[in-house]
Deep mutational scan, measured.
Amino acid sequence: PDLGLTQLFADPNLIENLKKNPKTSEMMKDPQLVAKLIGYKQNPQAIGQDLFTDPRLMTIMATLMGVDL
C-alpha cells in the first residue's frame, strides 16, 4: 500500500502550492528536489527510500498533510 501518498502527490498544483508555502518555498528553488517531487506523481513508492536520505521530504510531507512540525 502507498499509505495515501498517491493522493498527496497527485495534486496538479503540488509544486506551485509548495512554492507559495513559507515552510517549503526555499526548498522549491532546488531543481533536483522539484524533479523528485514530479517523479513521485508517477511512482509514489519511490519516496519511501528518499525519506531516509533527504530530510526536506519529511517537511514537505508534513506540509502536504497539514501537520505543523
Score class of each variant (00 low, 15 high):
21 N>S: 05
29 K>V: 04
62 A>E: 15
37 L>P: 00
52 F>A: 12
56 R>H: 06
9 F>C: 06
64 L>V: 08
53 T>Y: 09
13 N>I: 04
31 P>R: 06
59 T>E: 08
67 V>M: 15
17 N>M: 12
39 G>C: 08
28 M>Q: 00
21 N>D: 09
31 P>G: 07
20 K>E: 08
65 M>K: 08
3 L>V: 13
31 P>V: 08
65 M>Q: 10
50 D>T: 04
47 I>T: 04
64 L>M: 07
22 P>C: 06
17 N>C: 07
28 M>T: 02
21 N>Y: 07
38 I>S: 07
40 Y>C: 04
4 G>V: 15
57 L>T: 02
18 L>Y: 00
30 D>C: 03
57 L>M: 14
54 D>M: 01
34 V>Y: 03
40 Y>E: 01
59 T>K: 08
20 K>V: 09
53 T>A: 11
11 D>I: 05
17 N>D: 09
51 L>D: 05
37 L>Y: 00
11 D>H: 04
11 D>C: 04
8 L>S: 04
15 I>C: 06
41 K>P: 06
69 L>Q: 13
26 E>Q: 09
49 Q>L: 12
20 K>D: 07
49 Q>V: 14
25 S>C: 08
30 D>T: 01
56 R>A: 07
56 R>T: 06
68 D>V: 01
4 G>W: 15
49 Q>N: 14
17 N>K: 15
7 Q>W: 06
31 P>F: 04
4 G>Q: 15
28 M>A: 02
55 P>R: 08
27 M>S: 03
21 N>I: 04
12 P>N: 07
5 L>H: 07
27 M>L: 13
19 K>P: 00
68 D>Q: 02
56 R>N: 06
40 Y>H: 04
54 D>W: 02
51 L>R: 05
51 L>S: 06
40 Y>G: 02
34 V>K: 03
68 D>H: 05
43 N>G: 05
17 N>E: 10
16 E>I: 07
51 L>H: 04
52 F>V: 13
66 G>M: 07
55 P>C: 08
11 D>F: 02
11 D>A: 03
20 K>H: 10
7 Q>H: 14
33 L>P: 00
23 K>N: 11
24 T>C: 05
6 T>C: 12
13 N>E: 10
53 T>F: 12
22 P>N: 06
56 R>S: 05
25 S>V: 07
31 P>L: 09
46 A>G: 11
35 A>I: 10
4 G>T: 15
61 M>T: 04
44 P>D: 04
36 K>L: 12
23 K>C: 08
10 A>M: 13
68 D>Y: 01
61 M>Y: 12
13 N>Q: 11
34 V>P: 01
14 L>R: 01
15 I>S: 01
8 L>M: 11
23 K>D: 05
20 K>I: 09
6 T>D: 12
21 N>W: 07
27 M>V: 04
63 T>N: 06
3 L>S: 13
50 D>F: 03
8 L>G: 02
6 T>K: 13
